[in-house]
Amino acid sequence: MSDQPILRVIAKMFIPFLMLFALYVQFHGDFGPGGGFQAGVIFAAALVLYALIFGTEQAKRVAHPQALQLLVAFGVLLYAGTGVAGILMGGNFLDYGALDHHDPVHGQHLGILLVELGVGITVTTVMTSTFFIFSARKKP
């Protein structure tokens, strides 16, 4: 679709705002609707839109497939690592209150932020790399 000037211009205008909106959903999910799952999918949708308009090869230069594969695991590790950090700080697994000894509510905030970030990273990268894999497949 790279020869369609209207699509190219509109996509160029929209994609930064899509990504910004995904980050807003990610980090504002504590206060309004949103969170890691939604943000991950929206961010992946922005990358997929970019790949559809400008071609998968171009998109792979922005989001390198090997980097994506590493980040898939990193998201899960960030989530589980936050849980382990709770144990090391003297609490239970995934007990965020232990992350801050002076103020458990602050610890909860920190824990939720990290956990949601882990979810967001995993969802984004799984969706994006799935799309890359499907689009790279040659028609049999």
Binding site: F31, G35, L94, Q108, H109, G111, I112, V115
Partner: peptide, 16 residues
């Protein structure tokens, strides 16, 4: 939890 969105606090903390 100190988070206004109940869905987020259940999702990430109570049912982590």
């Amino acid at each position: 939890i100190g988070v206004p969105n109940i869905v987020t606090s259940v999702l990430a903390s109570y049912r982590g």
